[in-house]
């Protein structure tokens, strides 16, 4: 809790005074595992994009380009529904971070 402002320096009653600040709140830090994408194996069927509950699959011009780790909570739905073995797999966060 150190480094955060004290009670005298925060808005009253939990108010958030800055509009649109959700963009700076990265829910991806909840993650214990992350999906790792293999561009070589991917067929760009975009099932992962359709199913992702957090819109964390990045698609550019109809093609999968990777996972937005700022918002991916590591639920694994993308990996679960991916029809191409090996195109997406779940890896523990510490392993992935080390790798």
């Amino acid at each position: 809790m150190k480094g955060k402002p004290g009670w005298k320096d925060i808005p009253r009653g939990g108010m958030i005074l800055e509009a649109g600040n959700a963009a700076t709140y990265h829910t991806g830090d909840w993650r214990s595992q992350r999906p790792v994408w293999d561009p070589e194996a991917c067929t760009h069927c975009l099932f992962c994009w359709i199913y992702c509950p957090d819109s964390a699959v990045r698609v550019v011009e109809g093609r999968m380009t990777g996972i937005d780790l700022d918002y991916c909570k590591g639920c694994g739905i993308c990996v679960n529904q991916c029809p191409k073995a090996g195109a997406l797999k779940m890896v523990p966060e510490d392993t992935a971070a080390a790798g």
């Binding site: 809790m1 955060k4 402002p5 004290g6 009670w7 925060i10 808005p11 009253r12 009653g13 939990g14 108010m15 958030i16 005074l17 509009a19």
Partner: peptide, 29 residues
């Protein structure tokens, strides 16, 4: 001083307030 219908200064009231800030807000109260 702060009000929800103030379109010039949009704010959020009553957001989730967890271990890191709830206590400070009770201290304010």
């Amino acid at each position: 001083d702060v009000w929800l219908l103030d379109a010039a200064r949009p704010v959020t009231m009553g957001p989730l307030d967890l271990q890191d800030f709830y206590f400070e807000h009770k201290r304010q109260e």
